[in-house]
Amino acid sequence: MYPPKFDYYRANSLSEAFSLMQEHGGAKVIAGGHSLIPSLKLRLADPGALIDIGRIGELKGITANGNSTRIGALTTHAIVAAAKNLPQGLTEAAGWIGDPQVRNRGTVGGNIAHADPASDLPTVFTALGATINLTGPGGERSVAAQDFFTGLFETALQEGELVSSIDVPTNGGGSAYAKLFNPASRYAVVGCAAQVKVENGVCSAASVAVGGLTSHATKANAVEAALLGKPLNEATIAAAAAQISQDLGDDVMGDLHASADYRRSIAPIYVAQALTAAASRAG
């Protein structure tokens, strides 16, 4: 549990970060360090140099802007969990990450850039239709969350790019997050984020994503389709949640704690839980 030798550089601005990144090929960018430091200590990573972006002020904070709120990449989970102007599905998911120490150090940007398949925030951002803003030496670009997470620990980030912020729509309706957590890590064994709108007593919009089941956060299109135009009650929600097996197909992964069969079997429970809570918040 002793990391290999590395050089440490602190970037005080984005431009400084980019020049350090260019200067030190193979260096790893560190913010909260919650995924990187364990892998250094296990000597699974040996990047030679770390570039600390943790003090770059322009990447911090939460700013409301009309129907969208921007979360700086370096904002901690604890600050997101306590925020008032974000969808409830996001704040409750942030509040269930790890433990207080993890939430006080871990950052939203680091979390999604790492793209652990069992991580909560990729699922939530996918369901909420968030936009991930990336910045690199060549400028900024934006990617829909749904397209950002591309595989197991894989994202649309290009070499030399950083996550700068996440734009979260705040007019999407009621939202919620539900998960079964691993008792050690608190990562999701199965996690589901849902957002619904109800007009004239029926569901007019639904967006659902699940995590922990496949290589990356998965949009649950079949579940969504089954909700549209329906009144949201126990029966319709259960019927829609059952559609998650369509969305998952044969891609469900198992591990030491939960087999693929077990995960597939309990997935509808958490889809239904998230939908029920989201519906109750849809006003």
Partner: peptide
Amino acid sequence: LLNASFMDYLLPT
């Protein structure tokens, strides 16, 4: 040993 860390070896909390 497949779970040689407290990430994977579950202790009661």
